[in-house]
Amino acid sequence: MKRTALITGASSGIGKACAFVLAKEGYRLILCARRTERLQELEETIKNEHPGTDVYTFTLDVRDAAAVQDAISALPEAWKNIDVLINNAGLSQGLDPIQAGKLSDWDTMIDTNVKGLLYVSRAVIPLLEKSSNAHIINIGSIAGKEVYPNGNVYCASKHAVDALNKAMRIDLLEKGIRVSAINPGMVETEFSEVRFHGDTERAKAVYKGVDALTGQDIAEVIAFVLSRRAHININDLLIMPTAQATGTIVNRK
Score class of each variant (00 low, 15 high):
Met240Asp: 00
Asp217Ile: 02
Ile249Thr: 06
Ala212Lys: 09
Lys208Thr: 13
Leu226Cys: 03
Leu237Cys: 05
Asp236Thr: 11
Gln244Gly: 00
Ile222Ala: 11
Gln216Trp: 10
Val210Glu: 03
Gly215Phe: 01
Thr242Ala: 08
Val210Arg: 04
Ala245Val: 10
Val225Thr: 13
Arg228Ser: 11
Met240Asn: 05
Leu226Gln: 07
Ile234Met: 13
Thr214Asp: 10
Gly247Phe: 04
Asn233Lys: 12
Pro241Asp: 01
Leu237Gly: 01
Asp236Gly: 08
Ile222Glu: 02
Ala243His: 03
Ala223Tyr: 03
Glu220Ala: 11
Thr214His: 06
Ile222Tyr: 10
Val225Ser: 09
Thr246Gly: 01
Ile249Asn: 09
Ala223Thr: 10
Asp211Arg: 08
Ile218Tyr: 06
Leu237Ile: 15
Leu213Ser: 06
Gly209Pro: 14
Ala230Val: 13
Ile249Phe: 00
Ala243Asn: 06
Pro241Lys: 08
Ile218Glu: 05
Ile222Thr: 03
Val221Lys: 14
Ala245Cys: 11
Tyr207Ile: 13
Asn235Ala: 06
Asp236Leu: 07
Ala230Phe: 12
Ile218Ser: 08
Thr242Tyr: 07
Asn235His: 14
Ala243Val: 04
Phe224Asn: 12
Ala245Ser: 12
Met240Leu: 14
Thr242Leu: 07
Ile232Gly: 01
Arg228Lys: 15
His231Val: 07
Leu213Arg: 04
Asn235Phe: 03
Lys208His: 11
Lys208Asn: 07
Ile249Met: 03
Ala212Met: 09
Asn235Trp: 04
Leu237Asp: 03
Asp211Ala: 12
Asn235Pro: 00
Val221Asp: 08
Gln216Lys: 15
Pro241Met: 05
Ile234His: 12
Arg228Pro: 07
Thr214Ala: 11
Ile239Ser: 01
Ile232Glu: 00
Thr246Asp: 06
Ile232Arg: 04
Ala243Phe: 00
Thr248Gly: 01
Glu220Ile: 02
Asp236Trp: 04
Gly247Lys: 00
Ile218Gln: 08
Val210Ala: 04
Ala243Trp: 02
Ser227Lys: 08
Asp211Trp: 02
Arg228Met: 12
Asn233Gln: 14
Ile232Asp: 00
Val210Ser: 09
Pro241Tyr: 14
Ala245Met: 15
Val250Asn: 03
Asp211Tyr: 00
Phe224Cys: 11
Leu237Trp: 08
Ile222Val: 14
Val221Gly: 11
Glu220Val: 14
Asp236Ser: 11
Ile239Met: 06
Tyr207His: 15
Ile222Trp: 12
